[in-house]
Write a protein that binds this DNA or RNA. Sequence first.
DNA 1: CTGTTAGCGCGTTCAC
DNA 2: GTGAACGCGCTAACAG
Lengths: 344, 344
Amino acid sequence: MMADTRGPRDAQPTLRDVAERAEVSAMTVSRVLRDDPKVAPATAARVRTVIAELGYRRNEMARSLRLGSGTGLVGLVVTNLANPFYSRLALGVDSVLAQHGLKSVIGNTGQDLDSERSLVQDLVARRVDGIIAVPADADQRHLAAAAAEGVPVVLASRPPSDFAADCVLVDDYGGARSATERLLAAGHRRIGFLGSPPTVYTSIERLRGYADALADAGIGAEPAYIRQGQQQTGEAARAASELLDLPEPPTALFCSNNRNTIGAFRAIRRAGTTTALAGFDDFELADALGLPLTIVAYDSDELGREAGRLLATRIRDGSVRSATRRTVVPTTLVHYGTSGSTAH
Amino acid sequence: MMADTRGPRDAQPTLRDVAERAEVSAMTVSRVLRDDPKVAPATAARVRTVIAELGYRRNEMARSLRLGSGTGLVGLVVTNLANPFYSRLALGVDSVLAQHGLKSVIGNTGQDLDSERSLVQDLVARRVDGIIAVPADADQRHLAAAAAEGVPVVLASRPPSDFAADCVLVDDYGGARSATERLLAAGHRRIGFLGSPPTVYTSIERLRGYADALADAGIGAEPAYIRQGQQQTGEAARAASELLDLPEPPTALFCSNNRNTIGAFRAIRRAGTTTALAGFDDFELADALGLPLTIVAYDSDELGREAGRLLATRIRDGSVRSATRRTVVPTTLVHYGTSGSTAH
DNA sequence: CTGTTAGCGCGTTCAC
DNA sequence: GTGAACGCGCTAACAG
């Protein structure tokens, strides 16, 4: 017999509260909210007055439950929102989803597979209308399960493994390859590689692009020049320093993401060498480092927008099982010099 | 007589589906889910098997509707997620909320009051358990309305106007003041100010700190040295250039946020002057610009975490009407030189 | 034009 | 131990 602890004005009013006060049935209020023309103007006006007086707001959750329609919520699972790349992606996703009346529930996994798993399960339990994810790992069984239960899944930046889903990728291979080719064209023969853990798809592809470019130039990839696993700029700087300290150090470095590029930049500046630098992912102030820098750039907003579009289409069409689509966002090679920049 | 368009395996199974297949009542399944000990072990085992077979997941939305408990969702309203400041804030919020079993629904307003308004209304309609917002404007009636309806509101970075709410602020005044004092101590007498629009609280406070520091040094604030309204680095650079082109240009610039600091940096480098630079908000690579730089730094993650804590407390205690709390996050003055950095 | 009945998926109360 | 009834807030279908 616990008394209701909420004060009378604490609880948000329900449709019934409005109905009683307006002296009509709940149905009539419901119709007014739906702008159903079959309500007498006078009645509708009275109901609207009461709605305003009470500050009534329809409970969208209850509504979606009744309608069997979706919740209007989309899960967005990223590895690290603090990375500008992912925040831009999130922004792109959000901008497109907003146009479709969808809101994004964001979740940060910190590259941790367990977090990702429980996050996805929670999103499914909350009955999101779809999920956009940047999977942390090749183990994507939780995402596959969600997809199997009829929740549309779109992957960003990394492809699905062992299940079918739409995805938006970056031209990892091509971008890495052309950046490396540029270094080769500049006469470099000893080119180092710095990248994130080799379990990540993007890292694998970018390494492949790098290695193929070298191979085409008749240069075998030198394992001693390849350092993988650095996630933060600090680790990256250390790895770069190790390469620069080699008896026969590389004369150029290619970095598979902006964490590594920034780390490498710091190492080069400290070492005082003239090592050439190229990297994947653009970043702010890349033009202001006072070092020539070749960057593989791409539009991460667009990556998000495209993911949003793919998902919105799935949701609208309810086409859970139609053919899977894959989009690849192109890359551009940008050269930042010691003064200004030139797109290429 | 429209047939159900969903295939049999499309829909997520309900508690009843589990009950039928396990040949028990819905109630028993419900009990198993709640780990109610009053279920025969054998029955429980059978139910659990079916749950696994069907991949059943409880509908959290329906559950929260029935329980009258919250939705477990929190609205997070920011002005620009692409700004690292806000993405870190979001991350901080999310990390704390996650510990309380809450998820954040994110919304980006792009500093647009109308978007903010509709966003907040939508969040309330979705029955979020609370809202954390970085309000775009002094007009916060929509937030006040939400609070009045019993939805806990916490403001970050800017204080509530015309209503009561918890908030987490940065020491805008003190930070700006000490940075300006530092420039004064270095001998500067003509110090320019670059800031965002004067409608924003943080901008007002930071200007005040700047002006008071000057006043204490017996220097009147010179209107010609004050440029407000720049939101992006491009505009900021132009404004800075205008100051540098003055017949008697300032010998130092203080910038009220990192957009303006970066813009000013570019202008100074282009002009080739030795203008001293100080700014609010730390940013990556601030140490690598090859220019002495004084930065008012603070922990934006912590700002988010504190906001999350305040909100979580409100939600847990249901203390919608207890006294309002205000936290101020301290700032630190950091000096980046042409080689390395020193905290101060 | 308006109200009544029924039920979305779930959980509480109270019987058996 | 288990189940039937009832209701959370809302709305489609069917009366009147």
